[in-house]
């Protein structure tokens, strides 16, 4: 694991989550396969998205989502379907 990824993991350890059993982030596989920028894989402050070269698909670690909305706006062809997690789920900031 590279340093940057490790550093991010340490940051995310400090966050309180109550993850849902299903994802609130739903990319469209065909859009992602054709997407040139893969913008979501670097703008996301929680590193939720990773491009899986081998299988030509987007991995979505939705449990880490901080619910900021950046990926939705950055998505190259606005195909990413993005909703808030259910009321009882997702992130709870204790400081904010």
């Amino acid at each position: 694991m590279n340093d940057s990824k490790k550093d991010l993991e340490n940051k995310l350890y400090t966050v309180k989550y109550n993850p849902d059993s299903e994802s609130h982030l739903t990319p469209v596989p065909e859009s992602c396969a054709n997407c040139r920028s893969k913008a979501c894989t670097f703008v996301c402050p929680a590193g939720v998205y990773e491009w899986d070269e081998e299988n030509n698909r987007l991995i979505v670690n939705y449990e880490d989502c901080l619910e900021c909305g950046a990926c939705r706006i950055a998505c190259e062809d606005k195909s990413l379907s993005w909703v808030y997690p259910k009321g009882t789920k997702g992130v709870t900031f204790k400081q904010g």
Partner: peptide, 28 residues
Amino acid sequence: KPYEILDKVKSHPTIAPLIKDGEVIEYS
């Protein structure tokens, strides 16, 4: 990546002494 920039700000010689030995209690 935004958090990489933040880490660089934190280690800038003007900023690092201000937060030295502090413990990160929440990232957001």
